[in-house]
Design a protein around this nucleic acid. Structure first.
Length: 839
RNA sequence: GGGAGUAUGGCGGAACUGGUAGACGCGCCGGAUUCAAAAUCCGGUCACUUCGGUGGUGUGGGUUCGACUCCCUCUACUCCUACCA
């Protein structure tokens, strides 16, 4: 009897052998079919969590499988290394963000290696490295020159106690996370990228992404938010303002006869103009800007009036907090009868409500507190009367355009991307503020602009603003004095092009055009659904922008996208309602207790999180059971796109299965068949299973592949015990098994491969080739009576209707259910089913 | 408020374009092995049943020879998004 499988030695051994033999380095040969597998790179927080393990295990199955299928595979890994936690750690742990980050990278790299992922570590990159971020400074300058980057006033979260700008995630319930002070809105001039210029292309491009989940495409579609409507001018009656008219945007021009007021945003130019003349208005505007209770409708009558463009009736002009400056034109006409917000507003300020759409079923006769937003026929609207809503929209638009009162307009919700962050640990924005007042990009020959390092023992840098010697400089073009931009990029900037950089991460230029032409698009991108909108949209935008700057020739970065579910675990609480770690929980009889013997209650299943104390550390699992066990568990049972509940029992089951495979591979060496009559059909059964395993890998149903592998092993085990296979067949069956388990549990597979004396590496062999259709000579056909299965009969494959029906009607069970009844109909579907309808 | 999704045994989940519902795994029950246990192996496991059957995929209905699958209704849960005119 051979010894037990030792995961500790085997896993370490194969991990280093794969690296030493460069098994996972992609080939230079550009004639070979490529496959680019990418998982979303991690933030180097210090240790990997189960979410990473799941994400990278899924990617590793794809990468190893595609390699076995003969593709030239690229499977890189890197670090999304700029970001806030490093700055927080700098304060709490007194380490510089740089030191902290690189130290974490080191630790996590070791953890990832211990999982045996097939990453090509030679392509590793960290976005906080100047050799990475210097290139995005160049991109930014090119974008600036092309008019894709610009500056405008924008709101930030200001912590008045810490005197710092906070990121959105640092604001909890309107208060600063550290100081607890109430956060104020403050306006700063910040950098933006013109994502809105690409709204239409980002939207229409979704149509070609047929390997993306519909869910994600819908989310992006809603985010881009295309809507059709009209811009209509309302002329001011009082002429003493600079603005002579108010232009509004609406998607319901058909309701224009129901307009009873105009509302403009507090940030509308007219509001600003008025606030300079009128103190009340000024006060009201600051009230709007300060208020966080956003549901309450605030409004102020400006005293101005506009003329209704058709009826010429005067309408009051309000400043209202619910009108957004960022969307449309920052001004609307209020039609209270057919818009709930307008109605709430009108009721509060006693404005007129005119119903102009009547539902066809007359279910709504008057409007009180509920606006009617459905479809119907237009009323009270002169020449529009009697038309349905859609028709009326067209008629009124034609009318307004012919009179020069308005025009058709397509609008998008998508806004420009604000990339400025008032932080230290990020990529410096390469802009100079010159003493002559000019704002100019840094000359490209002066790049990179490197972050100033924290000096040992010196004060920690928390903002570039404080580093005098860094920010004061000379403009190399003019010799004038200048101050550097002290904001850094949003970290989504780095992750928007790392998939391009992987194609040649050490190149001195930003982009290797030819390598990218070969490798892009990413064939399979895998990550969490939480990035469905921002990261994926920014990456798509970046790809299009870089294409327009002639860096690359790629339209869409990610051909296939897969979003995996979360890793969850049961939670526990004690009678004081405190969370208890699962490791501390002990079951006694039907009750559970903590380690001190206090009673514990099982809570709901939740995403693993520190605050709920239901986190399982992957490194402990690897230590105890090995990486393969963790991988196998991750892939069993739960479909990859659904949540996976971590369970100790499941882990043990995986562990058991590995040992079973080990044992069966040992048996094969001593297997001797004594049987003379060997059924060759058994071999077919194994090939059929391989075929199913393959299909399920291709369609990302790894849980089903796992189930089929169990069936394969169970069948093999049974036939070996019953000595029903030929010796040479057993050898092939086990060889194939070793290969098909390889993408899932590569270490044990490689160990078995080696032990059985097969050539080279299992990781580098080829996937078994099997027939795609399996002809059966006979099959068991269900016979239904009135749609209920009553009997099963054996028939030949492709047996014709007459003969099958004859067999069916002679079947005792069928006779029993049909005698004394009238046969109305016989349904026959070849090789599938017979259904006899009786009465 | 808007949008998307999910619902199948004690549990996780299978069921290809409508054709034997519950594959596979966990758990549980019984047995073998053992001085005993662990491990391992074998058998059973949707419910009810008068052992002939009957019912059963969140609810109620429809289409069909036949529905987990298609259509409509309602319910519950999850996620995203939100004053987007």
């Amino acid at each position: 009897m051979s010894d037990r499988y030792n995961h500790k030695t085997a896993e370490k051994k194969w991990q280093s052998k794969w690296i030493d033999n460069e098994i996972f380095s992609s080939e230079k040969n550009k004639d070979k079919k490529k496959y680019y597998v990418l998982e979303m790179f991690p933030y180097p927080s210090g240790k990997i969590h189960m979410g990473h393990v799941r994400n990278y295990t899924l990617g590793d199955v794809v990468a190893r499988y595609k390699k076995l299928k003969g593709y030239n595979v690229m499977h890189p890994m890197g670090w999304d290394a700029f970001g806030l936690p490093a700055e927080n750690a700098a304060i709490t742990e007194k380490k510089s963000p740089e030191e902290w980050t690189y130290n974490n990278i080191n630790i996590m790299k070791g953890q990832l290696k211990s999982m045996g992922f097939s990453f090509d570590w030679k392509r590793e990159l960290a976005t906080c490295h100047p050799e990475y971020y210097k290139h995005e400074q160049e991109f930014f300058i090119e974008m600036f020159k092309k008019g894709l980057a610009y500056k405008k006033e924008s709101e930030v979260n200001w912590d008045p106690v810490d005197k710092t700008v906070l990121a959105n995630e640092q604001v909890i319930d309107g208060r600063g996370w550290r100081s607890g002070a109430e956060i104020e809105k403050k306006y700063l001039s910040q950098w933006f990228l013109k994502t809105s210029k690409y709204s239409e292309e980002l939207l229409s491009g979704l149509d070609e992404l047929d390997e993306w989940p519909e869910k994600v495409k819908t989310m992006q579609k809603n985010w881009i938010g295309k809507s059709f409507g009209a811009e209509i001018d309302f002329t001011l009656i009082n002429k003493d303002t600079n603005e002579k008219k108010i232009k509004i945007f609406t998607t319901r021009p058909d309701t224009i006869y129901g307009a009873t007021f105009i509302a403009i945003s507090a940030k509308h130019p007219l509001s600003k103009e008025l606030s300079n003349k009128n103190n009340n208005i000024k006060k009201f505007i600051s009230k709007c800007e300060a208020s966080n209770s956003e549901k309450e409708k605030l409004g102020l009558n400006t005293g101005l009036e506009v003329e209704h463009p058709i009826t010429k009736k005067p309408l009051p002009v309000y400043i209202a907090n619910f009108v957004l400056m960022d969307y449309g034109l920052g001004a609307i006409f209020g039609c209270p009868a057919h818009d709930q917000r307008d109605l709430d507003f009108a009721n509060k300020f006693n404005l007129e409500v005119i119903m102009v759409v009547k539902p066809d079923d007359n279910s709504v006769k008057e409007i009180n507190t509920e606006a009617f937003v459905g479809s119907g026929k237009i009323i009270n609207s002169d020449f529009l009367n009697g038309l349905d809503v859609e028709r009326a929209k067209i008629e009124i638009l034609n009318f307004l355009e012919s009179k020069g009162l308005g025009s058709k307009k397509t609008n998008y919700k998508l806004r420009d991307w604000g990339v400025s962050r008032q932080r230290y640990w990020g990529c410096p924005i390469p802009i100079l503020y010159r003493e002559d007042g000019e704002v100019v990009p840094v000359d490209e020959s002066d790049l990179p602009i490197i972050l100033p390092k924290n000096k040992k023992g010196g004060e920690l840098i928390t903002s570039l603003k404080d580093v005098q010697e860094w920010k004061t400089t000379i403009c190399s073009q003019t010799g004038l004095k200048a101050i550097r931009e002290t904001d850094t990029f949003d970290t989504f900037f780095e992750s928007s092009w790392y998939f391009l950089r992987f194609c040649n991460p050490r190149l001195n230029k930003a982009i290797d055009f030819d390598e990218i032409k070969y490798w892009l698009p990413v064939d399979q991108y895998i990550g969490g659904i939480e990035h469905a909108i921002l990261h994926l949209l920014y990456s798509r935008f970046f790809t299009k922008a870089l294409r327009d700057l002639n860096y690359i020739d790629v339209r869409e970065p990610f051909r296939g996208l897969f979003t995996q579910g979360m890793v969850t675990h049961k939670t526990f609480r004690n009678d004081k309602n405190q969370w208890i770690e699962p490791g501390e929980v002990v079951a006694k009889k039907d009750k559970i207790f903590d380690s001190d013997g206090n009673i514990v209650f099982a809570g709901s299943v939740e995403k693993m999180s520190k605050s709920k104390k239901n986190v399982i550390d992957p490194t402990e699992i690897i230590e105890l059971y090995g990486a393969d066990t963790a991988r196998w568990f991750m892939l069993s049972d739960s479909p990859p796109d659904r949540d996976l509940e971590w369970s100790e029992r499941g882990v043990l089951a995986s562990y058991k299965f590995l040992n079973k495979i080990w044992d069966i591979s040992n048996k094969s060496k001593v297997y001797k068949s004594g049987l003379k009559n060997i059924d060759r059909g058994y071999v077919d059964k194994f090939e059929e299973k391989i075929h199913e395993i393959t299909l399920n890998i291709e369609s990302f149903h790894f849980n089903k592949s796992v189930a089929k592998i169990y069936e394969y092993v169970n069948l093999l085990s049974t036939l070996i015990n019953e000595k029903k296979l030929k010796n040479e067949d057993v050898s092939v069956i086990i060889k194939n098994l070793t290969i098909v388990i390889h993408p899932f549990i590569p270490h044990i597979s490689e160990e078995i491969w080696n032990k059985l004396g097969f050539e080279g590496f299992c990781a580098a062999t080829s996937w078994p080739v099997v027939r795609k259709s399996f002809k059966k000579e006979s099959l068991r056909m269900p016979i239904q009576i009135n749609g209920k299965t009553r009997s099963l009969i054996d028939i030949n494959a492709n047996e014709e209707e007459d003969s099958v029906l004859q067999k069916a009607m002679n079947d005792p069970k069928v006779i029993k259910h049909t005698e004394n009844k009238k046969v109305l109909k016989k349904i026959f579907v070849k090789n599938k089913i017979v259904n006899i309808v009786v009465k």
